[in-house]
Write a protein that binds this DNA or RNA. Structure first.
Lengths: 338, 338
DNA sequence: CTCAGGATTGAAAACGTATGCAAGCCGGGT
DNA sequence: ACCCGGCTTGCATACGTTTTCAATCCTGAG
């Protein structure tokens, strides 16, 4: 049946038509029913598939989009990747995966490499791009959508949840629960996501005249968050509620409270997270958390990206999607809350 | 500086040399010091990068390898992807990510698409390929390495941990712990990995004349594993130890034991997992488990794949790497075990 | 029967690079 | 002085496709 490489020319010869005819059949251009039939039959017999690289070179569109992700420890990102991948595959796009790692300049290097593959677009998940790289993408006309992170100076589109509002919701919830000593282990303050959640949270507390909570940056890592929890609880007035900047850190905080300090959650301390990763629903944590509407964020991300690919002059877009607070067992639930 | 598309011809003109010279400089072929300098300078000024697609088309090597993965719920795979990605990036390869999903034939379709990108190799993580696809890869000379899963009939390389031996170790450990009613929630018996672990486990029990344990297939999912745990514990002789086919299921089993049935681990039931994902070390689970040596498995995977790419006639290889049993708090530890 | 008009078709150029080949250059040995 | 050999270099071709353009076919109206 199928030997090594079979080209459109081989198919053309077997079908008794020109190579152009074969191309037209497979690229959807017009052709008569008879030639379509002949070409299809010959292609089937030879096991022919059009070479995407050659096609990409001539059309300028590779149908490849680059997905740049910083780390996968936080369960939020594997799940997001899974959804993004499915959504893009369904639209006949393919994903070039790139781990940004922790090297701040290494990413620029690899991104440059990526550019040479004529990718049609870029999705960054929790990764900041150097402004140098940003300019480069703009110059080459490559659309970029930042998933779950904004970046102020740049002209890129972004899709996030309504983080400021989310922070507010958590504050209101904890206040309604009658918590008097509220603390905050923040998401990395170098990220817009972390800053926005913190800002909304603090603003809501301030508006009702609540005392300003103690805030420690958890850097989005288990280690920093655990250390922050220890510091908070060892202080003169240990908190009775902690808002943690994402679920990943919240699990670490709960582990410290329960297994190092022997405290009960939520009897001694209420803990609220952010994201609602699948693990938050596991009974071992049963974490009350503000849900990031992943499916809608993913849909918005691919919709925005593909729209920009189809129409380069479309302009960018900053999408914010609000999510609900999911009430579970890790935080005291105020009277009357559903 | 850099405008839209800059080709080797542009660089050649600016440098006052031929296009071939530019190509030679960037492809590492020989050239005089003076031309190298001129070309480098011109390229720098224009912001030139060789077009990988064009290069791939002529050389036949795209420096892209496809990574096919079934699901990312199990933390083992995100971590594996991270490592694989880093290892391949370090060798200047790029990763085309493909989620196999649950559609058994959908994967074949997408794989066919992938082939058209002239990928240099394929890594499958816990995914079985149809024999049709297998043949196709062989015919096209595309090396395939199966990560964490074998497949008997095929001529592909595979890298797994020593699953039979691992199953034995767990059995010996539970026996030494004095457990009398041992049960097994198996990894999916449709996978070599699941079958091997089960086989080693049962063989070790049988050799010492222990009663044959009750075995239920956990299908590698939380739901099936949880249901299996309920079934086992509701039976006439509930087990005092359960070997679970991987950590991902073991967490679900522990959740059922503790939060549905109110049992203590390991006082009432010992639980042992397989994989040693990062979460197994979290105090909320503190899971005793047989470690799959991820780093070495990843190294072996890329080494095998790249070797087959460099030398197509190299033949395939089945690598098995043994891992230790990691003693933690979820299972009773026999006297004298370290 | 003739002819206009649209639908099909094939030839050829283009995409951006690598590489075989022949010509040019240079140095050293006789 | 001459020639032989090796190192560089440019020319031209190839990779497999899409797409323009002109030529050809067919159909139906006059």
């Amino acid at each position: 049946m199928s030997d090594a490489k079979v080209t459109s020319l081989d198919v053309a010869r077997l079908a008794g038509v020109s190579q152009s005819a074969v191309s037209r059949v497979f690229s959807g251009a017009s052709a008569s029913q008879t030639t379509i039939a002949k070409v299809r039959a010959a292609a089937e017999q030879l096991g022919y598939r059009p070479n995407s690289l050659a096609r990409a070179m001539i059309t300028g569109k590779s149908r490849i989009i680059a997905l740049v992700v910083a780390y996968l420890d936080n369960q939020f990102y594997p799940v997001a990747i899974e959804r993004l991948s499915q959504a893009l595959q369904a639209r006949d796009y393919h994903i070039l995966l790139l781990m940004a790692g922790n090297s701040p300049e290494g990413i620029d290097h690899v991104m440059q490499e990526l550019m040479s593959y004529q990718i049609d677009g870029i999705i960054t998940a929790s990764v900041a791009m150097s402004s140098d790289l940003t300019d480069r993408c703009a110059a080459l006309g490559i659309p970029v959508v930042m998933f779950n992170r904004g970046q102020d100076g740049t002209a890129h589109s972004s899709v996030t949840s309504a983080n400021v509002e989310g922070g507010r919701k958590v504050a209101e919830f904890l206040l309604a629960g009658g918590h008097g000593r509220i603390a905050h282990i923040a998401g990395w303050q170098g990220s817009s996501t972390g800053r926005d959640r913190t800002r909304g949270f603090l603003a809501a507390l301030e508006e009702v005249g609540a005392p300003a909570p103690q805030v420690i940056d958890g850097m989005y890592t288990r280690e920093a968050a655990a250390e922050a929890a220890r510091t908070l609880m060892a202080g003169p007035t240990p908190p009775d509620a902690i808002f943690v900047g994402n679920d990943h850190m919240a699990f670490a905080v709960m582990d410290v409270l329960r297994f190092e300090l022997g405290l009960s959650v939520p009897q001694d301390v209420s803990v609220v997270g952010y994201d609602d990763v699948p693990m938050a629903a596991w009974p071992a944590y049963d974490l009350t958390t503000l849900r990031q509407p992943l499916n809608r964020m993913v849909e918005a991300t691919v919709a925005t990206l593909l729209a920009e690919i189809d129409d380069p002059d479309r302009g960018t877009e900053k999408v914010e999607i609000a999510g609900p607070l999911v009430l579970r067992g890790s935080a005291r639930i105020p009277q009357g809350w559903t």
